[in-house]
């Protein structure tokens, strides 16, 4: 690996650089446990993802995971990103209200988002707008409810064949 495209930032430098590329998008940026946390509105998520992936100084080419957190009052979608080039990590958090569990899909940015988003849909019922196929990934067709949610009640075990 040539050393000139390997750029190990300090935390402060990385924070400043990220803030600069985000420009006038409304988002809070602060370092948190060695990762850079970005909290933004859900309308900006695809724009921010595109920027942090495509900017050569940030270059978040690897989507580690998308998780959904049930905070009871609201839900939160969390994107974990890594840069293999710069050895840096970013966590983007988006709060979505319970009444309207919708967020834009980032499958156009990272195609690896496919299964993560389907899993989020399976377990929490979050709808990822723009995802081509939202059929159940882990659960079977016809499953009732969203087992990832705190409010989910575990059903009494039924048997397949009579007693």
């Amino acid at each position: 690996m040539s050393t000139d495209n390997f750029n190990q930032y300090t935390t402060e430098e990385f924070e400043t650089a990220t803030r600069a590329v985000l420009g006038d998008i409304k988002a809070t940026v602060e370092p948190n446990f060695g990762e850079l946390g970005i909290v933004c509105d859900r309308s900006d998520i695809v724009a921010i993802c595109k920027i942090v992936k495509q900017d050569p100084g940030i270059s978040m080419e690897y989507l580690r995971s998308i998780s959904v957190v049930d905070w009871v009052e609201h839900m939160e979608v969390v994107y974990h990103l890594s840069s293999i080039k710069h050895m840096n990590r970013i966590v983007i958090k988006v709060v979505i209200p319970l009444e309207d569990l919708k967020i834009d899909s980032v499958i156009t940015v990272w195609s690896g988002a496919d299964w993560h988003e389907r899993e989020g849909h399976d377990l929490f019922g979050v709808e990822f707008i723009g995802h081509p196929d939202m059929s159940p990934l882990i659960l079977y067709e016809g499953f009732e409810g969203f087992p990832g949610r705190k409010s989910f009640e575990i059903p009494v075990q039924e048997t397949f064949y009579g007693d």
């Binding site: 409810g145 087992p147 575990i154």
Partner: peptide
């Protein structure tokens, strides 16, 4: 018998059920 996944929403309680 389902083992550690007793009372799970997704596990069959023993293959002898099918």
């Amino acid at each position: 018998c389902g083992g550690p996944y007793t009372r799970s929403y997704s596990v069959v309680m023993g293959v002898d059920q099918i």
